[in-house]
């Protein structure tokens, strides 16, 4: 388990990360969400030891993380880059060797991964000859190659086409299933919602929400959609609910007082036929917007 505890980093007068704490559990895909400048990259760089820590600490399996631990993590930096002139496979073998693999193992594993990403035929190409999307895939392979003990991926999905997004998602799930803690940041909230078991939302250098997707949703507003035979304008007068949206016979209600929705339903059926009455699950994007601007 990777524990991030009260991490703080200042750049001059600006506190980029301010007492951030959260856990990345083994076997749990943890999504790291936040706007530009929220402090995601700074946090991840501190976790990887690329950036110094002003206060707080990173713990690995219950003790302070060491550079040796960090070297066995898989890392994909926000700013992508490889040696432009070197051939893809040679480069992956070199990076694998730096992580302690033998040339043979690194070569075999690299070829397997390239195959998965549909890049097997580009193994002998120079990196600079690849499209940006393909360069990104190579970089993903570089992060996964050595069988990392934890994964820290900064925006692994950005720049990938839908096929590659699927391949990437499968890989992450697979790695995660072997008990490896996985932390990745993303702007693509729908993807995070679909993929993640756990979410950490960052705003202005602080954690504003953290937990399972359902858990976070349950913190959001409880809403019901109702469609009746008659006009629903009367709802505005009912206590305990707030009308979010009203369009003739259809309305979206937010429950302010617990149980008020049952009163509304009874009243509605008394007035005539009710065609629809359903709970509306808030999208992650709504929750994100709410906590991020709170």
């Amino acid at each position: 388990m990777l524990e991030i505890s009260e991490l703080t980093r200042r750049f001059g007068d600006v506190t980029a990360v301010d007492g951030v704490s959260f856990d990345v559990l083994g076997g749990v895909l943890t999504g790291f969400v936040g706007g530009n400048g929220a402090g995601k990259t700074t946090t991840m760089r501190m976790v990887m030891g690329v950036l110094g820590i002003d206060a707080g600490e990173v713990r690995w399996h219950g003790r302070p993380v060491t550079p040796q631990d960090q070297r066995r993590f898989g890392y994909m930096p926000e700013e992508r880059g490889l040696y432009p002139k070197q051939r893809v496979l040679d480069q992956l073998v070199y990076l694998g060797q730096l992580k302690g693999m033998s040339a043979g193992e690194a070569g075999r594993t690299a070829e397997e991964h390239l195959e998965r990403f549909g890049l097997a035929d580009r193994a002998r190409s120079r990196v600079e000859e690849l499209s940006l999307g393909n360069q990104q895939r190579v970089q993903v392979v570089a992060a996964l190659l050595h069988g990392p003990t934890a994964l820290v991926l900064d925006e692994p999905f950005s720049g990938l086409d839908p096929t590659a997004v699927d391949a990437m998602a499968d890989l992450l799930r697979e790695r995660c299933a072997t008990g490896v803690p996985v932390l990745f940041s993303s702007h693509q909230l729908d993807l995070v919602e679909q993929l993640c078991d756990r979410l950490v939302i960052l705003a202005d250098g602080r954690v504003v929400a953290a937990g399972g997707a359902d858990e976070l949703r349950s913190q959001g507003p409880v809403r019901y959609r109702m469609t009746c035979e008659h006009d629903t304008g009367w709802l505005r007068e009912v206590r305990g609910v707030h009308v979010v949206d009203l369009d003739g016979r259809s309305a979206l209600l937010e429950v302010v007082e617990h149980g008020a929705e049952q009163v509304v339903l009874r009243d509605a059926t008394a007035r005539g036929a009710v065609h629809e009455f359903s709970l509306v699950r808030p999208a992650l994007a709504d929750i994100y917007r709410e906590v991020a601007t709170r």
């Binding site: 070297r71 890392y75 700013e79 880059g81 490889l82 040696y83 990076l95 992580k99």
Partner: peptide
């Protein structure tokens, strides 16, 4: 090329 960030987290 930013590859340095990968290398310094490896060695």
């Amino acid at each position: 090329s930013r590859v340095v960030e990968i290398i310094t987290t490896s060695i």
